[in-house]
Computed example of a mutant assay.
Amino acid sequence: MESEVEKNISSTKLESGNSGCSHYRRRCKIRTPCCDEIFNCRHCQNEAKNSLETNLSDRHVLPRFEVKKVQQYCVNCGVCMGKYFCGICNFFDDDISKDQFHCNQCGICIIGGKENFFHCDKCGCCYSNLMADGHHCVERAMHQNCPVCFEYLFDSTKAITVLHCGHTIHFEMENHHQFSCPVCSKSICDMSELWKKFDELIASTPMLEIYRNKMVWILCNDCSGKCQVQFHVIAHKCLDCKSYNTRRTQGPPAAAAASFSTNVVEIFTDRTKLYFKQSDHSLIPGAGGRVFIGVVILNGVA
């Protein structure tokens, strides 16, 4: 037989309705310890206390674990505050269709079903099983602010996506009018079709005569390789990975520069141009510059 308490609880349980807020469905509100006011949840408090109407000096957030002294059933009337309850996070939600579960490694509750996620120790968060064999690990990838909107990602209620490079970003921010990661500048998807169009565009756009033999050094954002290519006003193609996601840089790779410097045994000038004397006694004319107390200054940069 049911006890009086169990009967009281079962008789006072309410059907799921519109109770709660846009964040959670629950049959209670919280009194925030920071400002002693009543809100539906901590997210409602954070939104209210960080709005543009709030004085800048009064803005603050209520951290997840600052919500304390909560339980699933009311001690007075026995009403169930939420069908899902986590005593570690002090969290409850009446909408169990979210398949909430608590991850001990993350230390927070996550939605989506425990069987659909795995925890990556290096990234420090749970990812979908679809990424188990192919994601690029970035240490504490989720424990960062979104690089576009600057909201903290780890406990964000918004959908988050993981880019090919391993960096994380809010899903709604993925179309941030760029084809590259805002953190490392690597391409966020397969750009091979676009690169073919770049090939056609460059082939149909010849450069002026004075630029046709101009060579520049580039750094590839996708493969991190350096190479020297022919200058073009539209884009520069990486010779290694064939990507156009590149940027101009100065000088050859460090290894090539080091190889050159080991052959130079003497540097002198005739006041109009620098000369580099190599170990085989050959001279290499350099750019205009001067020698000052043993430091070579080219084009005004030491």
Rank of each mutant, 00 (worst) to 15 (best):
P285F: 06
V67Y: 00
N213D: 12
D155Q: 09
S156W: 00
K13R: 14
L62M: 10
D99F: 06
N221D: 02
C125T: 15
P253A: 04
E66K: 13
V216W: 07
T168D: 02
F118K: 09
G251T: 01
A258G: 00
V295Y: 15
L153T: 04
Q278N: 14
N18E: 11
D222P: 02
R26K: 14
Q178E: 14
W217G: 04
N76R: 08
T54I: 13
N8K: 15
H43Q: 15
T205V: 05
R27N: 14
Y84V: 07
E2W: 03
C89Q: 01
H60P: 00
R247S: 13
P63F: 02
H177T: 02
M191I: 15
C86W: 00
H236S: 09
C220S: 07
K186Y: 01
N55D: 12
Q71W: 05
C149G: 05
L298M: 13
D133T: 11
H177K: 12
R64L: 15
L62S: 00
A255K: 15
L194R: 04
I169Y: 01
G112V: 02
V67I: 12
D190N: 13
F179A: 09
C74L: 03
I30W: 01
K226S: 04
P182S: 02
A255G: 03
I202L: 04
D199K: 06
I9W: 02
N299Q: 15
E53H: 08
M1Q: 11
G124L: 01
A48L: 04
G294N: 13
Q178M: 13
R64N: 09
F292R: 12
G166K: 10
V79D: 01
R212H: 07
K122T: 15
C35M: 06
E2N: 08
H170L: 05
Q250D: 10
E172W: 03
S192P: 00
V264T: 11
Q250Y: 12
T269R: 02
V291W: 04
N213W: 03
F39M: 05
C28G: 08
H60M: 13
S180A: 12
F65H: 13
I9Y: 09
A257K: 11
C74G: 08
A159W: 10
G251Y: 07
S243M: 06
L274D: 03
N116P: 02
N90A: 08
P147S: 01
V229W: 00
R247N: 10
C89S: 05
C181V: 11
C123H: 03
S259L: 13
R271F: 08
K226M: 06
S243T: 09
Y127N: 14
V67G: 01
C241V: 05
I111E: 14
S279G: 05
R140T: 10
S279Q: 10
L14M: 11
C181F: 08
A159N: 12
C184Q: 08
N46R: 10
C77T: 02
E266C: 11
F92W: 06
D133Q: 14
S204T: 10
K214P: 00
G288D: 14
V5M: 08
C41G: 01
A287S: 12
S16T: 15
N8M: 14
I202Y: 00
Y275S: 09
M207E: 14
C41L: 01
F118R: 05
